[in-house]
């Protein structure tokens, strides 16, 4: 349904997307996971048609996504911003935003009522949106993108700044939309969200996809070992030097950055030895976390950074 090939976009000297390529099938929910600045919003903006000045191709349902504005009737966008009118009611907002698409008025009213039920806002449909909580606003933001029943839905960090209950609600909506046949690209830097909602996950950093697959496929990248995340006051070089001569199968440095490193160890007995090496080099360790193989350890291995960075 969607083929992205070699999409490249720069802001001055900063490369936001670096020959980015991706395929997406009908009904597939792709979680695009990456830290801030990875290029996720740039990608969504290009696909939404609000950002130009890029190279590469995007083919949607067999034709260039940018060939005709009419194609946008099949595209739903949920931006990171709460982009709607807070002085209008939820229903008025839906009727306005839905009115921009080729949906007959009577059908639009019916769909607006349906979607308000879906996002659990039917009881507050006629209230000005400015009275809504953050979670309710996020749900409305999502509802606007779904109203015209798009074939491809793009969501840019749709769960930012809301409580757990609202997050769960939005993730449910995303799953259901995918199950109904809509292809979804959903950007986030919350590991748990992609684990919960997505059928496929792509890890993205510095404008490129580093790895992609199902959750199990990605976890296999780091293998069945124990992982140790060490935080402290040290440089990447000093940390690497400290453990460089430790036996490779027993202790493997997965990634090292300034103040954060990830090690894979064959068993937990190796951990005191590692600590001895670090203390011997007078490297200050402030935190140590033992982890099972997970998306987080995959992300750390691939990017050398925690998603919190």
């Amino acid at each position: 349904m969607l083929e992205i090939r070699n999409l490249t976009k720069s802001y001055g000297d900063v490369l936001a997307l670096d020959r980015f390529s991706l395929d997406l099938a009908k009904g597939e929910v792709l979680g695009l996971l990456g830290p801030n600045g990875a290029g996720k919003t740039t990608l969504i903006s290009i696909l939404a048609g609000t950002l130009g000045g890029f190279t590469g191709t995007v083919t949607f349902q067999g034709q260039s996504l940018f060939a005709s504005r009419q194609l946008k009737n099949r595209l739903g966008i949920v931006p990171q911003d709460m982009a709607f009118y807070e002085d209008l009611s939820a229903m008025d907002n839906l009727l306005f935003w839905g009115g921009l698409y080729d949906v007959p008025r009577a059908e639009l009213k019916r769909r607006a009522a349906e979607i308000l039920e879906l996002v659990e806002l039917a009881g507050r449909a006629k209230e000005p949106v400015k009275k809504f909580s953050g979670g309710m606003k996020r749900r409305l933001n999502t509802a606007i993108g779904l109203l015209h029943k798009p074939d491809l839905l793009l969501l840019d960090e749709p769960t930012v700044g809301i409580d757990v209950q609202a997050k769960v609600s939005i993730l449910d909506i995303i799953r259901n939309v995918g199950a109904a046949g809509t292809a979804v690209i959903f950007t986030t830097h919350q590991l748990a969200e992609v684990e919960t909602a997505c059928s496929r996950i792509a890890i993205m950093d510095k404008g490129r996809i580093l790895a992609q697959g199902t959750l199990d496929e990605l976890v296999r990248i780091v293998g069945e070992r124990t992982f140790v995340e060490i935080s402290g006051e040290f440089g990447a070089g000093a940390f690497s030097e400290a453990i460089q001569d430790m036996p490779a199968p027993s202790v493997e440095l997965m990634s090292a950055g300034d103040n954060l490193a990830l090690l894979a160890v064959s068993d937990t007995d190796q951990i005191p030895r590692v600590m001895d090496r670090l203390f011997g080099r007078k490297l200050a360790v402030t935190d140590l976390t033992i982890k099972s193989p997970s998306l987080e350890t995959v992300f750390l291995k691939l990017t050398g950074r925690s998603l919190r960075d």
């Binding site: 939404a48 504005r69 931006p79 990171q80 911003d81 709460m82 982009a83 009118y85």
Partner: peptide, 14 residues
């Protein structure tokens, strides 16, 4: 500022 203009351009509006 609120991203409403950007979102309007996500529709078939030029």
């Amino acid at each position: 500022k609120k991203g409403v203009l950007s979102r309007l351009l996500c529709s078939p509006l030029s």
